[in-house]
């Protein structure tokens, strides 16, 4: 590889992604200029496009956050310097946004809103397409086969742990309803792809305790055992199973 070529590319890369543009004499030492535009104006097209394009990506991928965080677009340049994209797909550009906001001391409900929206991006096309387990398949089982029935969340699922009411904020923005006041609340949100549509639901407290097992792969018998201290464990286990089947969020696949 030519050292001169490498130097040219490295200069342009730094000139485009740096916090400040190089002065015109420096730009003109590397780039041609003419009557139509000087070297700085030509470089500006690339500097502007780099941030503007990826700001669009952040806003499109985090529409609810953008609705309540009007500075999101203005933060993009700093975000890209803190977490430069490394993946060929723009899908991954926002992967560290929640962490970036946390590092800058953003309010917890906005950090968690970013995390929830990131999980929805990942569920959109992450995880293989599968045929979910349904009531018909379960109804065909013999009663003695129920305890060993393998259960696992579909591959597209994501679990988001919240310490605020960010889920309620998401819903309020979606419905154009008044926003809930930021407040502490411990809860878990399950995000998954149902057919081609991304959905999410805040889990009941006992359901949230089962979620790690269902993420890793478990059996219906183990689910029943984990619910042993519930007031009516068998009824509760069955109710949850039917809820998950109707939500198309399970596959019958054992743990790896």
């Amino acid at each position: 590889m030519s050292a001169a070529l490498d130097a040219q590319l490295r200069w342009l890369h730094a000139a485009i992604t740096g916090a400040s543009p190089p002065p015109e004499p420096e730009a003109a030492a590397w780039l041609e200029r003419d009557g139509a535009a000087d070297a700085s104006a030509r470089l500006h097209v690339y500097r502007h496009a780099y941030v503007a394009r990826l700001a669009d990506v952040l806003v499109v991928d985090h529409p609810k956050l953008a609705a309540v965080h009007p500075d999101l677009r203005a933060l993009t340049a700093d975000y890209l310097r803190a977490f430069p994209p490394t993946h060929p797909s723009v899908r991954e550009v926002g992967a560290h946004l929640a962490r970036f906001l946390a590092d800058r001391g953003a309010p917890a409900h906005l950090i968690e809103l970013a995390a929830l929206e990131r999980a929805r991006v990942e569920a959109f096309d992450g995880g293989a397409d599968v045929t979910p387990l349904d009531r018909e398949a379960v109804a065909a089982l013999a009663p003695e086969d129920f305890p060993a029935l393998p259960l696992r969340f579909v591959p597209s699922h994501r679990l988001v742990a919240l310490t605020t009411r960010a889920d309620e904020l998401w819903d309020a923005i979606e419905r154009a309803a008044p926003h809930p006041a930021p407040a502490a609340a411990t809860r878990a949100v399950l995000v998954w792809r149902r057919a081609v549509t991304v959905v999410h639901r805040t889990l009941d407290d006992d359901e949230a305790t089962l979620a790690p097992a269902l993420a890793a792969g478990t059996t219906f018998g183990d689910i029943c055992a984990l619910l042993a201290t519930a007031p009516q464990p068998a009824e509760r286990a069955l109710a949850l199973l039917l809820r998950w089947l109707d939500a198309a969020v399970l596959v019958s696949r054992p743990a790896d």
Binding site: L9, H13, I16, T17, Y46, Y50, P84, P85, V93
Partner: peptide, 10 residues
């Protein structure tokens, strides 16, 4: 460049 993807056609 250097593992950093600019997502632009430079």
């Amino acid at each position: 460049l250097g593992g950093h993807n600019t997502h632009d056609l430079l």
